[in-house]
Design a protein around this nucleic acid. Structure first.
Lengths: 157, 157
DNA sequence: CCTAGATATTTTAAGCTTGAAATAATTCAG
DNA sequence: CTGAATTATTTCAAGCTTAAAATATCTAGG
C-alpha cells in the first residue's frame, strides 16, 4: 500500500508546488504589466530602462556591463542595447577604465540621477498601493520565504 | 509626536513592501530563466510557446485569440505571432467559426497535444525539484496569499 | 436597408531578449 | 616574449512584446 499511497500523494504535492509557481508568475506579470503601463504614460520610459537605472542608482561609481547583466539576470547583449538608448537620451555615460580597455564603466549622469530619483519615489508609491492589502507580517514572512528560496538556489547553483 | 512617528514608520513599511515586490520579481525571473533554458535544450521550444500550448491544452475545444491574450496577460498582436509559428510547426490549427468570420478558434493538433503532454510532465518535474526546499505548509500559505492578492486585484480593477 | 459604432484580429514600428558568433584586450604558461 | 586561453563587450539573427493603426466583420438604431 505504500506504493499506492505514493502514487496518489506525491502527485498531489507536486500539483501544490506547481500551483505556487503559476501564482508567483501570474502575480508578477500582473504587477509588471501595471508598472510598465504607468512608467510609459507618466515617465515615457520602459521597465527594462527603469531596472537598469535602478541598478546604476545604487552604484554611484558605476558598474561594468557584465556586472549589470549578472545583477539584472539578463544577457550581455541585452544590456548593450538598453544602455545605448539611455546614453543617447543623456541619462547614462560610458567611461573608459584605465588599465583595461576591454571594459567600460557605465553610470548615471546628473540628469539621469535626478530623473530616476523622481521616478523611484513615485514607483515606490505604486508598489505600496498595490501591496496595501497584504499586512506587514505576511509581507515580511513571504519576503523571507522568497529570500531563503533564493539563497538555496544560489547555494545549489 | 504622532506626525513624527508617521514620518519614520510609514517609509519603513513602504520599504518592506517594495522589498517583497523585488523578491517576487527576482524569484520569478530566476525560475523563468531556468525553465527557458531547459525548454530550449530539451524540447527546442520557448516559454511563450509553452504558455500558449498550456492554455490550449486545458481547452480541447479551442480558444479565441482574444481569450488567449486575456488569459496569458499579453497583447493581441503578441499571440498572433506565436500562433503563426505554432501553426507553421503543425502544433496548432486555426478553425473558422461558423457565424462570425472575424474570429477563429485555435486549438492544438493531435501532434501538439502529444508533444505538450510530454513536455508538461517533465516541466512539472523541474518545478517540483526547484520548489522542493519549500515545505508544504509554506507553499500552501504562500499560494493562498498570492491567490487573495490576485482576487483583490481583480475586484479593484 | 444603411450606416455608425462595436468587436476580433492582424499588421506595423520600435524596443526587448536570447544565445551564439565576432571583436578586442588581457593574462599566463612555456 | 609569444601565442593560446580567458575575459569583456558588441553584433547578429530570430523571436517576443507592446501600443497603436489598419482591416474586416458584426450589430443595432433609425
Amino acid at each position: 500500500m505504500v506504493a499506492a499511497r505514493h502514487a496518489t500523494l506525491a502527485p498531489q504535492q507536486g500539483k501544490e508546488r506547481l500551483r505556487l509557481w503559476v501564482r508567483i508568475l501570474r502575480v508578477s506579470r500582473l504587477i509588471e504589466a501595471e508598472l510598465r503601463d504607468k512608467l510609459k504614460t507618466e515617465f515615457d520610459t520602459t521597465l527594462p530602462r527603469f531596472d537598469v537605472m535602478a541598478a546604476l542608482y545604487r552604484e554611484p561609481d558605476g558598474m561594468l556591463m557584465s556586472d549589470l547583466s549578472r545583477y539584472l539576470l539578463v544577457s550581455n547583449g541585452n544590456v548593450t542595447g538598453i544602455i545605448d538608448r539611455l546614453v543617447a537620451d543623456g541619462f547614462v555615460v560610458r567611461a573608459l577604465r584605465e588599465g583595461d580597455r576591454r571594459t567600460s564603466v557605465v553610470s548615471l549622469t546628473k540628469t539621469g540621477r535626478t530623473f530616476f530619483s523622481k521616478m523611484a519615489a513615485v514607483h515606490e508609491g505604486w508598489v505600496n498601493a498595490r501591496f496595501a492589502d497584504i499586512d506587514e507580517d505576511e509581507a515580511r514572512e513571504l519576503a523571507s520565504v522568497l529570500q531563503s528560496f533564493r539563497s538555496n538556489w544560489e547555494a545549489e547553483t
